[in-house]
């Protein structure tokens, strides 16, 4: 029994760890989408955040400065995204896809210039990495974002920008200003999510290291019906699937073949499809999601 207890404990710890990048990124997605801006670009924001964090943590030796750089990198990237989709009214899905391509191309491009390698950045010493701080920070942010959206005036602006932008504009609040702020905040959060990949879970930035986590964060956001705590629970659930899948890799439970972990990997995505189809509960997007706002 002791063995099983140990395994369970290790699984819980590992679930908390691997769900941390997802938590940050999906909170970022939540802030942007509740304000009415689709965020397919989460993947790219995470990727530049992971890169920026690795570079600064390496040169400064401080994980905190690294995380701040991750947030800054995500934010700058988000400014570019906001410029394209809010100011230039580009299609948000197309632009998001382009941003992801840009991040996938720009990070190895910069890595080559800085370190003469497109594969990965040099490894970080243990002092330049986080041990557990991001886990705590992530849950603190869940609480903060929830309080902000539910109980503050600016949180209400955010909700109105996503549900009824005309009403908000009529009340004298500039919709596009609210959306700009939300998208930038979204970039910073997703950037920290990326940072917690490169300087917490791993010890360097490697090419395309987000590997679809931005999209998984998006899935968690939809699964959590665009609400902070349900979204966080979805991140835990998806994190658990990920941890389980890592734990079972190559393990032979029955017969002679290892367990096909692919089926565990696809569970979060299947679950999201079912929730969205209303087969398990119902998930409704903010009403004005994806619609550029022009002054009437």
């Amino acid at each position: 029994m002791d063995g099983y207890f140990g395994i369970a404990l290790a699984l819980i710890a590992s679930t908390l760890r691997v769900s941390t990048p997802l938590l940050f990124a999906s909170l970022g997605g939540l802030v942007s989408e509740r304000s009415g801006v689709v965020n397919i670009a989460l993947e790219g924001m995470m990727l530049v955040g992971a890169f920026g964090a690795a570079v600064v943590a390496l040169s400064s030796g401080s994980p905190w400065l690294g995380a701040a750089a991750g947030a800054a990198a995500g934010l700058v990237f988000a400014v570019f995204y906001a410029l394209i989709v809010i100011q230039l009214r580009a299609d948000q899905i197309v632009a998001g896809t382009a941003m992801n391509m840009l991040a996938a191309g720009a990070t190895p491009f910069l890595s080559k210039i800085l370190y003469d390698s497109t594969g990965s950045t040099p490894g970080l010493p243990i002092d330049a990495r986080f041990q557990f701080a991001p886990v705590v920070l992530a849950w603190a942010f869940v609480l903060l974002v929830w309080l902000w959206i539910a109980y503050t005036p600016s949180g209400m602006w955010l909700r109105f920008a996503g549900e009824k932008p005309e009403a908000l504009e009529a009340a004298g609040v500039r919709v596009n200003r609210v959306r700009w702020t939300s998208v930038m905040l979204s970039g910073a959060l997703a950037g920290i999510g990326g940072a917690s990949l490169s300087i917490f879970l791993a010890s360097s930035f490697s090419r395309n290291m987000t590997a679809g986590r931005g999209f998984m964060a998006l899935a968690a956001l939809i699964f959590g019906k665009w609400k902070p705590f349900p979204t966080a629970v979805a991140c835990l659930l998806f994190g658990f699937a990920d941890a389980l899948q890592i734990r079972l890799q190559g393990v032979i439970l029955w017969g002679t073949e290892p367990v096909p972990v692919q089926f565990i990997q696809i569970l979060p995505y299947l679950a999201t499809i079912l929730v969205l189809a209303g087969l398990v509960g119902r998930s409704r997007a903010p009403r004005a999601l994806g619609l550029p706002f022009r002054k009437p």
Binding site: Q87, M99, M101
Partner: peptide, 11 residues
């Protein structure tokens, strides 16, 4: 990605 952005930026 830059070509996509230039094509799609209606504004």
């Amino acid at each position: 990605s830059l070509i996509i952005v230039s094509v799609t930026a209606e504004g």
